[in-house]
């Protein structure tokens, strides 16, 4: 079984700046990190590997610097890493990205014995764009079932049973078979830290394989800026809205109401 994890390099969230002239994110001098949700995706893939045996393959599309997050993924225990990097891929929106990711997955599956024995896992969304679209679009490209916003996962003899959050409150339990695509929420697990020997292995025993447009042979109209349907009008950092709640009652009632509120907001 192969478990693909698609990960994205994003700017460390607290330090995002936008260039007012070009309307794009300023990336210079900003530390890049693995999209936090994607770490949960990696963790789930590694758990599946440990419990059921699987080959975990991380894929990222981005500039050559994105190798760093793939090395981090390898440090965590991922077996193989592919970096899809080419100037032709630049400027891709979610549609062009998912098309390119799908090409890479199909290419890797070509050499697999059982071409249907695979699972694709992504973080539910990236903290920079917040679209959550790549997962669903990638599932369509691969023509496999998709389950988004997964908070619990179980694998039983090729059947997967997951809990997904629906309309923020309802939980839906879904059963499906491989192949399938999942996008996961942060609640699903706590990502592990790479160990020291994991890091050493990632740099000495494992490699990051680069794939460019020549190797993926894409339809040129579907990649990069050409393949992007989205036109960015404006990028802005969402304003934080502080809500004021006044709680009245006896001390006990106030305390209980406060706790309820904090629990609802998942602070407690």
């Amino acid at each position: 079984m192969k478990v693909f994890v698609c990960i994205k390099q994003v700017p460390g969230v607290s330090e995002v700046r936008i260039d007012p002239k070009t309307n794009t994110l300023v990336r210079e001098g900003i530390p890049s990190i693995i999209n936090p949700y994607d770490k949960n995706a990696i963790e789930l893939a590694l758990t599946i590997k440990e419990e059921n045996g699987a080959e975990v393959i991380a894929i990222s599309m981005g500039p050559p610097q994105a190798e760093e997050i793939l090395r981090e993924a390898l440090s965590m225990g991922v077996d193989k890493a592919f970096l899809l990097t080419d100037k032709a891929f630049a400027g891709a929106d979610t549609l062009a990205t998912s098309y390119t990711l799908a090409l890479a997955i199909k290419r890797i599956l070509k050499s697999a014995k059982n071409k249907k024995d695979y699972l694709v896992i992504l973080g539910a969304q990236a903290i920079d764009g917040d679209t959550g679209q790549v997962g669903p679009e990638l599932a369509e490209e691969l023509d496999i079932p998709q389950i988004t916003y997964v908070q619990k996962f179980e694998l039983k003899e090729n059947k997967i049973i997951v809990e997904r959050i629906f309309r923020t409150e309802e939980v839906v339990i879904i059963e499906t078979q491989l192949p399938a695509l999942l996008s996961v929420l942060r609640e699903i697990n706590i990502p592990r830290f790479p160990t020291m020997s994991g890091i050493v292995d990632a740099y000495t025993k494992k490699e990051v394989i680069s794939l460019d447009a020549n190797e993926l042979k894409p339809d040129k109209r579907k990649i990069g800026l050409n393949g992007s349907m989205t036109e960015v009008w404006k990028i802005f950092i969402p304003e934080r809205k502080a809500e004021q709640i006044i709680i009245k009652g006896t001390n006990e009632e106030i305390a209980q109401e406060l706790c309820r509120n904090l629990k609802n907001d998942k602070i407690l």
């Binding site: 760093e68 090395r71 981090e72 440090s75 830290f193 790479p194 020291m196 890091i199 050493v200 990632a202 740099y203 000495t204």
Partner: peptide, 14 residues
């Protein structure tokens, strides 16, 4: 080197 940077980053986070 890259490995040393990663060791530093991860150890700091840890």
């Amino acid at each position: 080197n890259e490995q040393q940077k990663m060791l530093k980053k991860i150890t700091r986070e840890f």
